[in-house]
Design a protein around this nucleic acid. Sequence first.
DNA 1: GTCCAGGCTTTCC
DNA 2: GGAAAGCCTGGA
Length: 275
Amino acid sequence: MNYNIVQDKNRIFLKDMDDFEPKHIFECGQAFRWKLEEDGSYTVIAFNRVLNVKKEDKDIILSNTNLEDFNNIWYDYFDLGRDYGEIKKELSKDPILKEAIEYGDGIRILNQEPFETIISFIISANNQIPRIKRSIELISQYYGEKILHCNYTDTFCHPEGREESYEYYGFPTPEKLSKINPEDLREKCKVGFRDKRIVETSKIIANKEIVLDNIFNMNRQEGKELLMTLPGVGPKVSDCILLFAFNKDDAFPVDVWVKRVMEHFYLKEDTNVNI
DNA sequence: GTCCAGGCTTTCC
DNA sequence: GGAAAGCCTGGA
């Protein structure tokens, strides 16, 4: 990984950054709160902060942050300690994966906040991405804390076309979500039949019947068994949580699309499979 | 004990 | 209208 870090006021420049394609990282479906801005940059609310990311030529620009947060939060969040070049080299030995890597070049696996990731993927069951994103946004607006975080005059802090009062909301805590009425959640946030699962899971975590931080020290199988005791968390959702929040790089979520792809390319190559 | 059909909210194609 | 990033329940 070769890049140079330069700080300028509230921005961090990652100069000559390889393997970092915002569109592929933020729109691949691993995270739901990244918003595409008119200038092509992306804004997210995470870790009680608002961050904007823009790619200019070979540089990545992180706005509304500082070196301390970069070192303590964003370095790990963006998985910057992992050498994706080496991974690509290894996987490219397979011709099909080689083509897939070229198609999705610059993708990275984020390390997201555990609780928000758990609720997000409970919502993802039998659902569609636009709806998932909307529900998470609504949950944040109704039950999350407002984030006052922009003291600068950057365009992304005062974007054109948005109301002056545009506000950012963090994802609520387990304590907060554990106390709401499932019917309220369903009506306001359009989560459908997942309402009780969300509240019940929040209760278990708020009561510390399950301590999420302990999962960092477990292996994939131990973590999976524990997560699957939560209502709404089955085999697929638990693998998503382990991969996207707990840094378990051996977790391999198989959804209907992955299943179709695997069957098409690796299991039934000589048969006519509808995909 | 395992297996699996049916049900579940709501929106989007 | 049918499908959609699965999970849960109950019966065989």
